[in-house]
Each structure stands twice: as structure tokens, then as C-alpha cells.
Write a protein that binds this DNA or RNA. Structure first.
Lengths: 353, 353
DNA sequence: GTGAAAGCGCTAACAC
DNA sequence: GTGTTAGCGCTTTCAC
């Protein structure tokens, strides 16, 4: 690989001149510029970003840390980040953490070593996050997405999760659902799931309805089927409406319900969260709360890069979410569906409460 | 930020000793090591990867360039790449190109500037690719995924696309479909779509069946509805079986068919390609050819890193694909569905042939 | 306009 | 075992 020194030599100038030309800093005589350009072409020289970064102490790169690539909601956000970063000349360093807190720390540490200029990330728990503490300590600029920390200092692009949860409940209640449930991934791994639950429960409580049953499933486990069978077949009145903390989960839930002989939405309504594209292609189409994921990524990137450029930026941006009523929700047909046929659910498989 | 010099000073040793300790190269007296460790902790020192990379001329990072983040098939591959890279201590630099050839070049050039140790990528056309030419010229190690170049020299992890296309055709033909069609994204942007088409047409030709109708839709356009209406309502016998170059497209197609009053699979069968997870949750479930995307990413990464480590590696790895028959394909019920009701399709909207 | 030279943070001979 | 020192490829004063 040719270096700037080689170019300088071949053009009969000093490295300083080449550098100036390359970066458009300082004036270079037309004649000289031509010679240098020729040398660059002849040697097919490409400036080494490492050398530049070491010298300028900025890398023109930003780190991206998200829980999972396989959830379209994050993939879409990354697409937005990529868009915005690219047009502004920034490169992405990327890691996904699989919802693992230790992995978060490892990933961010690693990106710090690589001297990224800033970070965009979604963490498990922004309230107790070693990662964010570390970042705050370092002073490295970052922007959270999806997370909704109470701390107003932490830069965030998000939606109103509590309100969204409430709206999901309102939608269900509006259709006559009184006994409801929420199916969620591990709350410990998602502050937004917690917030959505809070809103959901709030709305139900305000109506004097029974508290929603909570079904917390492990992302790896995902044995949604067993867990659902248990509550449908349980001693308590079975829910007629189910709120799922995300669309992927909602899709699993609908599949499991089908296997359990329940028809959606006739026997039971299901509403998801995220608004991933495939939802509209399902049959029944998925009712959900739509987050503007791509825009979230774009906005976060814009915020981060503006800040890197020294501009004043808001610490928190709340993007609008929208309720998308799909065919997976409908009016209550029977209030107590416990008398439905139970295809198979031996009593001993019910988990101990 | 503390540097290695600061640490050395505080521990009363030379930078060489600190470096040796950090990298486990060379011996360091127990006593000394302790002092250094303490200094590192006290200063919360983190080695600057830029300095190291500049010195060792390797970055422990690999570049990833794929067409789109929003297609789960690529997202899954990236997940696999991330897995494997992470466990082997490599960091990912990432770009998506939106199927744009110029963008490919820009992206790769950029990653080269950042001195990535190698690249994993999917290009539009591996036969005529300025990017690959550039890479071959540079000598920078890379591995293609999804692409299936004829050139045996270009390292690739892929599946047998022609065979897979043939199998899709066989499946359709086996169900009695004679008049078929293929719906694809731009062939110019996908060598694999071309290969799949080749296999599909081959199988049909071998049977003496009419050549499949080809519907090429632009990824941005995606006006699948109009295009489908045209062929269903056209002068030629309408196809009873449709092969789509990827699952996302198949999902759109099924949606469009539904709007056009066609029932899948009763009136028309649809088979996709990729095997993205949601396919199994659709209703009808999506028939498709499954590619092992995650494994593809993993394998490519393993190959690349093995090569970086100086190991001998195969230039081409063909991973097995599998046919997943879903409910979106079925036997032919009527051979000429042209007499079906046409909900709305004014003649003037038919594109000129 | 242009050049000389001092760094940026680290590794790796090479001495001792 | 440990220290000295010359780079790695670039930018950026400071002279001229």
C-alpha cells in the first residue's frame, strides 16, 4: 500500500502539501495540485484512516449496539442509522448483544477501544446500567433508542411507552374485553416492556377491571404454548384479550392459540407492539402499536452527529406512535371461554403458581 | 484518556513492559505485573486500538456489506456473522447498499480506508463487479455470501441456486401446474435470482411445458398488484403456479392476489425463496426454499478468519438448502382460471407489452 | 504556497 | 525481565 509519503515523493512535494490537498485545508497551487493528483492516481493511493484518526483523534465512526438483529424492529432502526450516517460520512461499527447485559458491557468497551466518536444503543435496563454509567463517566456522546430512562439527562429517542400500553388496553376494553392478559419477554431485559405493562395495567385498573394476567416468557425459552395453555385452562377466568410486548411474540402467541384450538379474534383477541412490516401480511392481520423504527434510527443518528458537530440538541425526543387496528382484535363473543374444548392440557403440566 | 505512557510512568516501568503485559507477549515479573495492573485500574486505562492497529497493521475488524437490512434473510446472516466474529475477537464494520452498485463501491472503498482485515459481502453482480475486481487487485481477503459467481477463484459461501430453482419448479409441476410464472426483483441486482430462474425454466422446458412468464418488479416500485393483474387478465393462459425470487416478494404477491380476488392456493399456488422465519406463521404458511442464512454468515466468517489466520480454506462452500412445502401451494383445480371474476382491472391499466 | 518536524498511542526489534 | 527507540500513516503548528 502506498502511503502519503510515497505520493509526496513522487509528486516532488512534502507530505504536508499532499495532506492539505487531501483535506482541502490550506491553499495549494493549481500546478502542484495536478502533480499530486497524478501521483495519487499512479499509485492508486488511499489515505489510511487509522493514521488520520490517530492524529485527529476522531474516527468518523459511530458504534451501534442493539439487542438483536433478528427482530425487524431493530433491523429497521439500523437501516435508518445506516442511511443517516452514510450521508453524513460516518461509518458504523456494529454489535448485537442478544439481550445479555454482560455482552452489552463487552460490546461497548470494545467500541470504546476502537475510538468510535459516539454510540447509538438500546440497553436492557437504562435505570441500572453499568454501560451507561461507564459512558457518562467517559463523556462519550451517545443516544439511546427504544429505551425510555427516567433520568432526563440521558439522550434518548423513543416513544411514549406507558401511553402506548394504555392505548392498547383502551382498544381492548373498547371492544368489551374485561379479562385480559399481557404476554411479555423478560421484563428485566426490557424497560419498554415494563412501561407498556404499566400503561396497560393502569388503564384496566382505572376501569375497575381485574388486573391483567402477566405471562413472562424467556426469549430463549419461548415456550409460549405451555404457558398460554396454563392460563386458558387455569382456575381464574381466562382472558379474552391478550397484549403482547412485541410483534414477534404476538405472532408466536397467535400460532400457539391456534394450536390450542382458539380462534383469533373470535375466541380471543391479540394485539402486538412494534408495527413490523409483516404484521400487515398475516392472516388475520396483526393489530399493533406502530413505532417509527427507521425514523427512530435516523433521528438518533442526526442527534448524535449534530452533537458531535457542536450543535445544541434536545436530550430527549419523543416520536409519535400509532395504533394499528388489525384483524387480530375483535369484540368479545363470550365472557367466560373456560368451557371451550381443551384439546390437550394434562393437569400436571400446569406450572405451580 | 490515559495512555500506555501514563500507565508506565505511574507503575515506574517502561511502556514496553506495559505493552508486553497487555498482550501477553514476553514475560513480566509477578511483582511488576501487579504494579502495572494497579496503575491500569487507577487510571482506568483502555488501550487505544487505533495505535495498536497502526503499529501492527491489522485492525481485528471485518467489513460487512449487504444489500438491505430490512430483509430478514440478510439480517439473519449478519446475526451469524456477529456471533462468529465476536467469539473470535473481531469487530464488525457495517454498511448496507440498497442494491445500488455505486453504493457498493463507496462502501467497500470506505471500509478499505478503515483498514478492515477482511470483508464479507453480497454484491449485485459478481460476474461484472468493480468492487470484486478492486478487492482482487488489493489482495484483501473476502468471502461472498448468497452470490454464486462462476469464477471458482472467488471465495463464496452459498447454496445451489439453479438446483433450488429446479426443485421449486418440480414441486409445482408435481402438483399439476403447467402454466407457471416467476416473479422476481431486478435480475440485474441479483445473480441468485437469475440462477433460480434458470433452474426453474430448465425444469419446465425439460417437461415440454410452456416457458414461465417472467414478471420483473423493481424493489422500489413493488407495484406487484398491477403487474400481476396484467398477466392474470392477459391474452396468454394465466399461470396457476408462481415462483417468487424471495419470501418478502412472495408475501407481497400473496397479498396482491388476495386483493385481485384469487385464493392461495386454491386458485393459484405461490412458492417463495429464503425461508425467513415469519413464513411459517403466515396463513396460509409460505411454501419456500430454505437457505441456512445464519449458518451462511457463520461459515463465511469462519472461512474468512481462518484465512486471516493463515489456514488453508476452501474457495467455495455450498450449504444445503431445503424445500419447505407450505400451505401456499396446492394441486391445480382449474387449468384456465381466466374466466374468474375480475374485481377491477380496467383495460387501459394494462401495461403495453 | 510550501516544507520540516513534532506528535497521535501503540508494538517490536534490539540492547542490556 | 526490562528499557530504549524507531517506526506505523497521518495532521498540524511553525517557519520561511
Amino acid at each position: 500500500m502506498a502511503t502519503i509519503r510515497d505520493v509526496a515523493q513522487r509528486a516532488g512535494v512534502s507530505v504536508a502539501t499532499v495532506s492539505r490537498l487531501l483535506n482541502g485545508t490550506g491553499k495549494v497551487r493549481e500546478k502542484t495540485a495536478e502533480r499530486v493528483h497524478k501521483a495519487i492516481r499512479d499509485l492508486s493511493f488511499r489515505p489510511n484512516a487509522l493514521g488520520r484518526s490517530l492524529s485527529t483523534s476522531q474516527t468518523q465512526s459511530i458504534g451501534v449496539v442493539i439487542p438483536s438483529m433478528s427482530n425487524p424492529v431493530f433491523a429497521d432502526a439500523v437501516a435508518g442509522i445506516n442511511d443517516e450516517a452514510r450521508t453524513r460520512g460516518y461509518t458504523l461499527m456494529f454489535t448485537s448483544t442478544d439481550y445479555d447485559r454482560d455482552e452489552e458491557l463487552r460490546a461497548v468497551s470494545n467500541l470504546l477501544d476502537y475510538q468510535v466518536d459516539g454510540l447509538i444503543l438500546t440497553v436492557a435496563d437504562p435505570e441500572h446500567s453499568p454501560v451507561l454509567d461507564m459512558l457518562d463517566e467517559t463523556g462519550l456522546p451517545y443516544v439511546l433508542i427504544y429505551n425510555q430512562p427516567t433520568d432526563e439527562k440521558r439522550p434518548t429517542v423513543t416513544i411514549e411507552n406507558v401511553a402506548a400500553g394504555r392505548e392498547a388496553a383502551d382498544a381492548l376494553a373498547g371492544l368489551g374485553h374485561v379479562h385480559t392478559g399481557m404476554v411479555s419477554g423478560l421484563f428485566a431485559a426490557s424497560d419498554r416492556a415494563k412501561a407498556r405493562r404499566e400503561g396497560f395495567e393502569l388503564s384496566m385498573a382505572r376501569r375497575g377491571y381485574p388486573a391483567p394476567m402477566i405471562v413472562e416468557v424467556d426469549y430463549v425459552d419461548l415456550d409460549v404454548h405451555t404457558r398460554l395453555a396454563a392460563i386458558l385452562d387455569g382456575p381464574d377466568p381466562a382472558p379474552t384479550g391478550l397484549f403482547c410486548s412485541n410483534d414477534l411474540l404476538a405472532i408466536s402467541v397467535i400460532g400457539a392459540l391456534r394450536q390450542l384450538g382458539r380462534k383469533v379474534p373470535k375466541d380471543i383477541s391479540v394485539i402486538g407492539f412494534d408495527g413490523i412490516a409483516v404484521g400487515t401480511h398475516l392472516h388475520p392481520t396483526l393489530a399493533t402499536v406502530v413505532q417509527p423504527s427507521r425514523e427512530m434510527g435516523q433521528t438518533a443518528t442526526r442527534l448524535l452527529l449534530d452533537r458531535l458537530a457542536g450543535k445544541e440538541t434536545p436530550a430527549k425526543v419523543i416520536l409519535p406512535h400509532t395504533l394499528r387496528l388489525g384483524e387480530s382484535v375483535g369484540p368479545v363473543t363470550k365472557q367466560s371461554p373456560t368451557d371451550l374444548q381443551e384439546p390437550f392440557q394434562p393437569a400436571h403440566r400446569r406450572p405451580a403458581s
